[in-house]
């Protein structure tokens, strides 16, 4: 067998599509892979415009892409990660993946005759497997990232993620000299509530409180579960008046909230501490301590109350 017929034989048997175009985008040659997968007959393909044979091609984009190959005399690529496929072809795992068409990596090669470009060769690789596993991996990674940030019971941010957010907001507020307020609140007599209704009752109250407070906040506010029955809200670009307004709404909404549990009605209340960023604060932990002091004051003042520390460290 001659070298030429060896090559022709191999080109027809590899699992990669080979398509050769002239400089007017007419098809000069294709291999068996493309013939089989596109289910078109060779006589309806050869010498025809690639856009007539494969009308699904994004024509303007495709022409500009080929023009870079022709003008710069260099190869070009198209990955499934940016474009899932160029040619609408079926693939070899129709049963065990959810991909409708074959995911493709395409290479555009200039074909030279005596250093002058005469044709363009397209190589079309089936990467449906790669697409399938990468998509699965991305879904799992997203879930993992989410579960790293979310408190399993209340579905709001967990303490670790919430503190990371606070650290960012704190340094942003410092850098741009913006306001920043913090609210921390704690369910009053939660131990008694647990003793009376059991932990399932307590859990139900925590879930309801989290979902209720979420509805009172702006999109930019960051709400998290700080500890057992303690919650915290970061209010970016907010002054003391604004923060007190939110705190009072939180206190009132929870006092008015009704939780039904096993034919019984549970009422709850919270003590709320508020603080705003202070010129003396150097670390975000300083802001937490100030808010904590206000919360402690609110508890000692008889519960279901809001206490705040203003910029001058005075209680309000």
């Amino acid at each position: 067998m001659s070298l030429e017929s060896y090559c022709a034989n191999i080109v027809d048997r590899i699992n990669t599509g080979v398509l050769i175009l002239d400089l007017d985008y007419n098809i000069v040659m294709w291999n068996r892979f493309l013939q089989v997968h596109s289910n078109k007959s060779t006589e309806n393909v050869i010498d025809k415009s690639v856009f007539d044979v494969f009308p699904e091609l994004p024509r303007r984009w495709f022409e500009r892409k080929l023009s870079s190959v022709i003008e710069l005399n260099t190869q070009s690529f198209c990955s499934w990660e940016q474009r899932h496929h160029l040619f609408e072809l079926p693939h070899t795992r129709p049963i065990t993946t959810d991909s409708v068409y074959m995911a493709q990596n395409c290479t555009f090669l200039p074909v030279l005759d005596d250093s002058k470009i005469t044709n363009i060769c397209l190589l079309i690789e089936d990467v449906t497997d790669v697409y399938h596993y990468q998509t699965k991996l991305n879904t799992v990674l997203e879930q993992l990232a989410l579960s790293n940030r979310i408190d399993g019971l209340t579905q709001i941010f967990n303490r670790k993620h919430w503190e990371e957010c606070l650290a960012k907001e704190f340094s942003r507020a410092r850098r741009y000299d913006h306001g920043l307020a913090l609210i921390m609140f704690d369910l009053d007599c939660f131990k008694l509530l647990n003793d009376t209704f059991g932990h399932q009752g307590g859990d139900k109250v925590l879930i309801k409180v989290a979902s209720l407070v979420q509805t009172l906040l702006r999109a930019c506010d960051i709400f998290g579960r700080y500890g057992g029955e303690e919650f915290a809200i970061i209010l970016p670009e907010t002054d003391l008046t604004g923060a007190l307004d939110v705190a009072e709404r939180v206190r009132r909404s929870i006092a008015e909230m009704i939780v039904e549990f096993q034919d019984e009605i549970i009422h709850a209340s919270v003590s709320v501490g508020v603080a705003v960023i202070n010129p003396a604060d150097t670390r975000y932990e300083d802001l937490i301590s100030n808010t904590d002091i206000a919360l402690y004051k609110a508890k000692n003042a008889g519960r279901n109350k809001v206490f705040a520390i203003n910029e001058l460290d005075e209680f309000v």
């Binding site: 994004p58 303007r60 984009w61 500009r64 892409k65 870079s68 710069l72 005399n73 260099t74 190869q75 070009s76 690529f77 990955s79 990660e81 940016q82 474009r83």
Partner: peptide, 28 residues
């Protein structure tokens, strides 16, 4: 710059396309 309409391709694809052009023209 690349001569595409902005809605024809994502920013990522634009960056990859230009990178390939810069790398291959220089190294050729």
């Amino acid at each position: 710059l690349l001569g595409y309409e902005p809605d024809e391709l994502s920013v990522e694809e634009q960056i990859i396309d230009l990178s390939s052009i810069l790398t291959t023209t220089f190294l050729n």
